[in-house]
């Protein structure tokens, strides 16, 4: 049987959440002829012992993945202006005005308690 005829071995990527509040994480991949079978096999193949709260299966074809070059380019991105990095001098400045700089906790503290 040629591969074109045989659609049994399709690659599915399996993602899961450990608890209701955790983020989705990639686990591994498996072969299945379709999504429903991929789904019923995923649980016992990858979560026989670990706790799991939710499982997603996605056909690999449907995932846009990065090539090696694209991944290389990610490493070179450097956006200091989006970070707190360049603002170290402010602490000293506020001291000149006899004020303490607001910490991350002070800034975030106004939200949910």
């Amino acid at each position: 049987m040629s591969k074109e005829e045989n659609g049994f071995y399709q690659v599915f990527e399996v993602f899961s959440k450990k608890t209701d509040t955790s983020s989705l994480q990639h686990q591994f991949s498996l072969l299945a002829p379709n999504r429903d079978l991929a789904f019923i096999m995923a649980k016992e193949n990858f979560f026989r012992r670990e706790q799991v709260a939710d499982i997603w299966v996605v056909k690999r074809e449907d995932v846009k993945r990065m090539s090696q070059d694209e991944r290389e380019s990610m490493k070179q991105l450097n956006k200091d202006y989006r970070e707190t990095k360049g603002y170290g001098y402010l602490k000293k400045k506020w001291r000149q005005y006899e004020q303490e700089q607001l910490t991350e906790k002070d800034i975030m503290g106004g939200g949910d308690k």
Binding site: M1, N6, G7, F8, Y9, P33, N34, K59
Partner: peptide, 12 residues
Amino acid sequence: REALGKSALASG
């Protein structure tokens, strides 16, 4: 494997 590989269900 043949049945499910050829089946329309393969499209999910």
